[in-house]
Design a protein around this nucleic acid. Structure first.
Length: 216
DNA sequence: ACATTAAGTGATT
DNA sequence: AATCACTTAATGT
């Protein structure tokens, strides 16, 4: 079991630079950290938010899901990030419209949602952080929209692979063609074909359950 | 050895 | 670019 001191130290290291001293102290008082295993769902659409989640360590995938359970990747969030969608949910007490999945073992910090509004008035760093988060997520979403509208699927796939590699800091991508197809809302056959082509171009190597990029 | 799941491929729309 | 139908290859039991 991790001691409180160790936990605080970790939070300080990972996201401490974001907030002022007093706020950090409040975070220590009311926040709880939680480890989540790879591939676990952190948040389902329709769920009510009781906590504002922050990523302290690891990476999380945020996606949209329709009634049939088909997904579409909106963006990734990593250390120091929170999800703009959840912020809104916390204030308005509405339900989540997105799905969040850990793509590696991650650690999240949970803050009871009632502090959200109080801190907005009390701490400048918090206000800035929230505004920045919104801005950043919105930009990322626009990039994603651009890619759907203006890029061909092979270009999107390439971007997807590189983003994934950068995020996890490894040229090895442990995903099946099926999983990739789901994120890009395409079909497995199509992805397999495009990957095969990329392999012929020497951009990647294909193995079972794994793709190795030659470079980023 | 057999079943299951991932990946490859030709043909069709 | 998607879907079907089928094959081949890798992996678990």
């Amino acid at each position: 079991m991790i001691t409180e001191q160790e936990q605080q130290k970790k939070i300080r290291q990972q996201i401490g630079y974001l907030f002022e001293k007093e706020l950090l102290q409040e975070i220590f008082n009311v926040g709880k950290t939680k480890k989540v295993p790879m591939d676990s769902t952190i948040l389902e659409p329709g769920e009510s938010l009781l906590y504002i989640p922050f990523i302290i360590d690891g990476s999380v995938k945020v996606s949209r899901e329709n009634e049939d359970g088909e997904e579409f990747l909106l963006y990734y969030i990593e250390r120091g990030d929170t999800c703009a969608m959840t912020l809104q949910c916390c204030v308005k007490n509405s339900k989540s419209e997105i799905k969040a999945t850990a793509i590696e073992e991650s650690e999240i910090l949970l803050i009871p949602n009632r502090y959200m509004e109080v801190w907005l008035g009390k701490y400048i760093s918090w206000r800035n952080y929230i505004l920045d988060s919104y801005h950043y997520r919105l930009s990322e979403m626009m990039e994603t929209i651009d890619s759907i509208v203006f890029m061909r699927l092979d270009e999107r796939l390439e971007r997807y692979l590189k983003d994934h590699a950068k995020l996890l800091g490894s040229l090895e991508i442990n995903l099946t063609h099926q999983q990739i197809a789901e994120d890009l809302h395409s079909s497995r056959v199509v992805i397999s074909r495009l990957l095969k082509q990329m392999e012929r171009n020497g951009m990647i190597q294909i193995q079972r359950n794994k793709i190795v990029l030659s470079s980023i």
